[in-house]
Design a protein around this nucleic acid. Structure first.
Lengths: 197, 197
DNA sequence: TGCGAAACGGAGCGGCGCTCCGTATGGTCA
DNA sequence: TGACCATACGGAGCGCCGCTCCGTTTCGCA
């Protein structure tokens, strides 16, 4: 049983989460923690007491939205005209989720310091959903290529990770290309041409 | 006619380039400029006088290697058993180039401050090569999907950009999936299932 | 050998994530 | 209602980063 928290703690944590969501939406997730603390009207010490690292703050801000993305998977599978259609729809939903969070995609991969927790949260929540969709599309014979859910979500996330407002590049087309590529068997890498050189 | 440069200028620039190549290879391209300057045995002022930003240093270090990658394209096209095989081989050569430079892939996309120049160099040198390969493979009927060279190199670069030594993920398989996906026409996005929900 | 232009080096700038300790506040009890 | 104590606070300052700037040094030429 958690001890009862003081009113000011609850109030400040709420203020921080609200401010972070606003600041991340306008300035991107690389906004400084100073900007977040100032927007919340609290001091730096308070921010770090509630969220010991930037990553903790990001996880807290985005947790519910990642959950929503996860829950959309089974719903799409139940409603779509085919498992493959559900798979494609869900992948695009995932793309939309990443792309519309200003800069959140850049923390999709946890190499940068502090982003590992958010990346882990993505995987823990979304890989099982994708597994279910891939499994259904494989059983229906629509997906024949051998690919694991982790590989696919990793690839899609990586493709979206750098999305900026670039009129010359529509990442959704590329994602569709990748996913529809799953419908044909994959070649072994062409080695004979290398041997003949 | 450039004025003759002093001996110490030449010596220091050579030292900086050598040191940067070594430091980038061991510590990654995100190594500090202090580390590079120290490894070269010169001061910070000297480093910045020769290379006004980090990007300038990176461009100088990697220019010749990007050129080599570019020159491999026509050679592969002349030697491969088919234009598509040459395309796939070249794309994998590009992947190898990015993946074996410790961390250089992370600067493939120029969003991060200072990396724009290197990204631009990649595009200026490599997009025309890929264009030639794609054109040949399209004329031979092996590529039917509509994709521009910029889109493809962007996608491949983005897929590789986050590559780490991850035994659970072979980016080359994904790249092969993407490129071989070009051999089938792309579907329009499935809209009817969305309308029926 | 002296001169002057070019090149040097590194302390310090502002900005970042984060720490730490003197001060303030909330909640309970008498 | 006031006192007390544990908890929470805020922001100056830490180390680190990319980069600047100016007093000092060095190179090359006559």
């Amino acid at each position: 049983m958690t001890p009862k928290r003081r009113a000011d703690v609850e109030r400040n944590e709420r203020a921080l989460l609200d401010a972070a969501a606003r600041v991340f939406a306008t300035s991107g997730v690389n906004a400084t923690v100073r900007e977040v603390a100032a927007a919340a009207g609290v001091g730096m010490g308070t921010l770090y007491r509630h969220f010991p690292t930037r990553a903790d703050l990001m996880v807290a801000v985005y947790r519910h939205q990642i959950d929503a993305c996860a829950e959309a998977g089974p719903a799409l599978l139940a409603a779509a005209e085919s498992p493959f259609a559900a798979l494609l729809d869900w992948v695009h939903l995932f793309v939309d989720f990443l792309a519309t969070k200003h800069g959140v995609a850049t923390v999709w991969k946890g190499d940068a310091a502090g982003y590992t927790a958010l990346h882990q949260l993505f995987l823990d929540r979304l890989v099982p959903v994708l597994a279910e969709l891939l499994d259904a599309a494989t059983k229906s014979g629509e997906v024949v290529a051998d690919i694991r859910p982790y590989e696919l979500i990793r690839a899609v996330g990586d493709l979206v990770a750098w999305t900026v407002q670039d009129p010359g590049y529509d990442v959704r087309r590329i994602v569709t290309l990748l996913v529809t590529g799953l419908r044909q068997p994959q070649p072994t890498r062409v080695q004979s041409s290398a041997d003949e050189r």
